[in-house]
C-alpha cells in the first residue's frame, strides 16, 4: 500500500466534506455534547440542584458519562463513511478512480483515513474539554483533580478502535446500500452493542473498570483485524463495479 496515494484520496474527501456542513455537524455534535453538556449536568447535580448529589457519587458518574466517547466513536464515523462510499457510488465517481494506478488497498486506506481522522480528532477534542470542565467543576468538591486518569486513558484507547471497526463495518454495509441515508441508518445499528454495554454497566451486569475497558479495547482490536479482511474482500475493483448495488 502507498501511504501517499491513500493520503491523496483522504485529502480529496476532506475537501468535499468542507462543502458538506451536514457531515461536519454530524461529526462534531456528539463530542461537543459529551465534552460540554455532561460536565454542566454534573455541575448542576452537584452544586445547583435542590437535591444535590453527594460528592462520593461524582467519580462514578464521570466514568459512566465518559463511556459515551466509545459509543460516539462507534456511531460518528457512520456519517462520513456512508457518504464517502455510498455517496461516491451514487455519483459514479468510483469507477474512474479505480481506473487509476492506485491499488484497491490505497483507496480503502484513504477512505478509512478520511472517515476516521475527523471523528477521532473531534472525540479527542471533546475529551479534552470534558476532562477540563469536569476537573473545573469537581475540584472543589473532590479536593483533587479527577482527570487525567487510567479510566479515561482506556476509554481513549478503545474509542479509536471502535471508530475503526465502525468504518470497516460501513465499508461492508456500503456494498449493499444504494443511498447514503439507508447506509447511515443501518450503520447506526452498530452502536447498539455499545449502548447495551453501557446499560449493562449501569444496572451492574458489567463493571466498566480500567481492566475491563482495556479488555474491551483488545477485543475491538481483534474484531477490527477480522473485519478488515472482510472489508478488503468487499472493496475490490471487480466487486465494486459488478456486485455493489
Amino acid at each position: 500500500m502507498d501511504i501517499g496515494n491513500a493520503w491523496n484520496v483522504a485529502l480529496k474527501d476532506f475537501k468535499i466534506y468542507t462543502r458538506k456542513p451536514s457531515v461536519i455537524y454530524a461529526t462534531v455534535a456528539l463530542p461537543l455534547i459529551v465534552g460540554a453538556v455532561f460536565p454542566l449536568i454534573l455541575d448542576y447535580s452537584l452544586h445547583k440542584s435542590a437535591k444535590a448529589l453527594s460528592a462520593a457519587r461524582a467519580p462514578g458518574l464521570m466514568d459512566a458519562f465518559s463511556i459515551w466517547f466509545v459509543i460516539g466513536a462507534a456511531v460518528i464515523p457512520t456519517a462520513i463513511a456512508s457518504y464517502s462510499l455510498v455517496g461516491e457510488k451514487m455519483q459514479k465517481s468510483l469507477e474512474p478512480m479505480l481506473a487509476t494506478p492506485m491499488s484497491d488497498g490505497d483507496i480503502l486506506l484513504g477512505k478509512t483515513i478520511s472517515a476516521l481522522l475527523l471523528p477521532v480528532v473531534a472525540l479527542y477534542a471533546g475529551s479534552i474539554s470534558y476532562m477540563a470542565l469536569m476537573d473545573y467543576f469537581t475540584r472543589g468538591t473532590l479536593g483533587y483533580y479527577y482527570y487525567p486518569n487510567w479510566h479515561i486513558g482506556a476509554i481513549l484507547l478503545a474509542a479509536p478502535l471502535a471508530a475503526l471497526l465502525s468504518v470497516e463495518v460501513n465499508v461492508v454495509i456500503s456494498s449493499r446500500m444504494t443511498d447514503v441515508r439507508s447506509a447511515q441508518q443501518t450503520g447506526v445499528l452498530f452502536m447498539l452493542p455499545f449502548i447495551g454495554l453501557f446499560l449493562a454497566s449501569e444496572v451492574g451486569l458489567f463493571v466498566m473498570n480500567d481492566t475491563n475497558l482495556t479488555i474491551l479495547a483488545g477485543a475491538l482490536a481483534a474484531i477490527s483485524v477480522g473485519t478488515f479482511f472482510v472489508a478488503k474482500a468487499t472493496f475490490q475493483r471487480e466487486e465494486i463495479l459488478t456486485r455493489w448495488r
Binding site: I16, K92, E95, A99
Partner: peptide, 17 residues
Amino acid sequence: RKMIGLLTENVGLYEEL
C-alpha cells in the same frame, strides 16, 4: 493503468469540487 486514460460511461465527477 498508467498508460491509459478512461472516460467512463457516467462522467463520475466530484460534483462538490
